[in-house]
Design a protein around this nucleic acid. Sequence first.
DNA 1: ACCTGAACACCGTTCAAGT
DNA 2: ACCTGAACACCGTTCAAGT
Lengths: 200, 200
Amino acid sequence: MARRSEHSLEELKALVLSAAETIVIEEGFSALKVRTIAMEIGYTVGSIYMVFTNMADLIMHINAGTLDAIAVQLEQAQEECGAEQSIQILASSYLRYASQNFNRWHTVFDYSLSVDSKITAWYKEKVDNVFALLEVPFLAYAPALSEDQRKRAVRALWFGVHGICALSLKGQRDKTDIDDIEETLALLVKNFMCGLTPSP
Amino acid sequence: MARRSEHSLEELKALVLSAAETIVIEEGFSALKVRTIAMEIGYTVGSIYMVFTNMADLIMHINAGTLDAIAVQLEQAQEECGAEQSIQILASSYLRYASQNFNRWHTVFDYSLSVDSKITAWYKEKVDNVFALLEVPFLAYAPALSEDQRKRAVRALWFGVHGICALSLKGQRDKTDIDDIEETLALLVKNFMCGLTPSP
DNA sequence: ACCTGAACACCGTTCAAGT
DNA sequence: ACCTGAACACCGTTCAAGT
């Protein structure tokens, strides 16, 4: 065989990425294997290494797509309302995304721990993009804060929101569970915002 | 060979667990392999399966020890002071443990995701034990809260504290980094506590 | 009864060989 | 130039065989 040339390298890369995303979404990160991807797209294992340097590279691209999807979800959630409610809505939206796309969402944080400083600039940009979305309502809520103070406040609250999502979404996830997590999330946001501006 | 009988099964189990803990502490979870453990204690792979049903079982025992160590660290940190400062100290102590024992600490949360509802009662008890420690200062700080409200507040703040530790401790961890994380942690705690009791 | 170690069914990655 | 697939160096787990 060899020399099929049915797809360009770019097309092949897209095929691999798409198949890999489907596997992660449907079966989770632990089900992602080179041989499975190859079978799924009708190529052999070697071909995957033509378009991705290794699994870590492929996973980083999967996670980049997830970060984009998270940004889209957060953008869509924006409404005309007060700054505190904006932040509440962003937190709820983040929880909703994490809950409805658990495997995909989880892979982002599962993986970045094993990367060891190989995070590229374009990837970091996608992370920053999500954080930039979160900063907006903070600017409206507490305009008196310095940029450093605001960035720290965003980090504190958002890492906190993520922590609640991550640790809460481990067990079974039915509708009542999600409502309960959302209530915990709302408590964190409410208390935090209250402390951020003692005299509104 | 065979029939060495140099150690009882209990002693063997302790040997395996101790060697495994050392590997996790020194090289991290990803370096933990049955063959390495076996070599380290002078037995062969098969012996490990005499005392642990599989790797998941062994890891759960490693994590149980880590949870105990966290509880000890939090207990030792207790001081004679106000309730809010107590919580600040607990949060700092948790960060200190996570930072100084990163590999071991990280394994607890790395792993529990892949367990799939196989968490035994005695393990859950160790988790509850840590949470019980955290509840104490909340009882002093906001005695008016119902038990449900207090438990939710503890979850909200502590999952938040954990989130900050987990996401912040990924990059390089030098002393200035830790100070920065501690400041973020303190902001979360301060704001949260302020919101918890609007009129103290 | 205790312990071995070969065997099995997996992994990710490479690269000489084909067209 | 593109693609294969055998080969390599790993994994966790099992279990017939030894003493």
